[in-house]
């Protein structure tokens, strides 16, 4: 399976256009809602709501919604949320996240395998 990796500090409206080119999209984002070191993978789908009001802040769900609305693009989309506690510039990973990282990477790799089987 071929995959492209893009790192961005913010999702914008323009990212919706890129989704035209992909069958599957995995958003990976830090979360303040989960305890540090815990992670979840959830499925995203267009749901008729978009919270994007301005130009430079979209949630993954917004991007999915706009992709469907504007570009008729509905890739399989997932959000990997990783609990974290340190968000300052140049912060390194905290201990709980550092310890969990190998398992998170393994989960992403198995996720990749699951997708390959599905496709």
């Amino acid at each position: 399976m071929h995959a492209d990796l893009e790192c961005v500090t913010q999702l914008t409206i323009e990212h919706s256009q890129k989704l035209r080119n992909y069958e599957t999209v995995l958003f990976i984002d830090a979360s303040i809602l989960l305890p540090p070191g815990e992670w979840t993978i959830e499925s995203l789908a267009p749901h008729g709501m978009c919270s994007a009001q301005a130009s430079h802040h979209c949630t993954p769900a917004d991007v999915i919604e706009l992709a469907a609305l504007l570009f008729d693009a509905s890739p399989d989309a997932y959000l990997l949320s990783i609990g974290a506690s340190k968000f300052d510039e140049r912060d390194s990973l905290g201990e709980p996240l550092q310890a969990a990282l190998p398992n998170i990477v393994a989960d992403v790799k198995s996720f990749d395998t699951r997708l390959s089987r599905k496709n």
């Binding site: 323009e14 009001q53 504007l70």
Partner: peptide, 21 residues
Amino acid sequence: NIAGLAAKNPQLARDGIRLRQ
């Protein structure tokens, strides 16, 4: 807002996105 615009007039929203892009 822009999301409302996308729903009402997708072509106009696409044009804006394309110009900015």
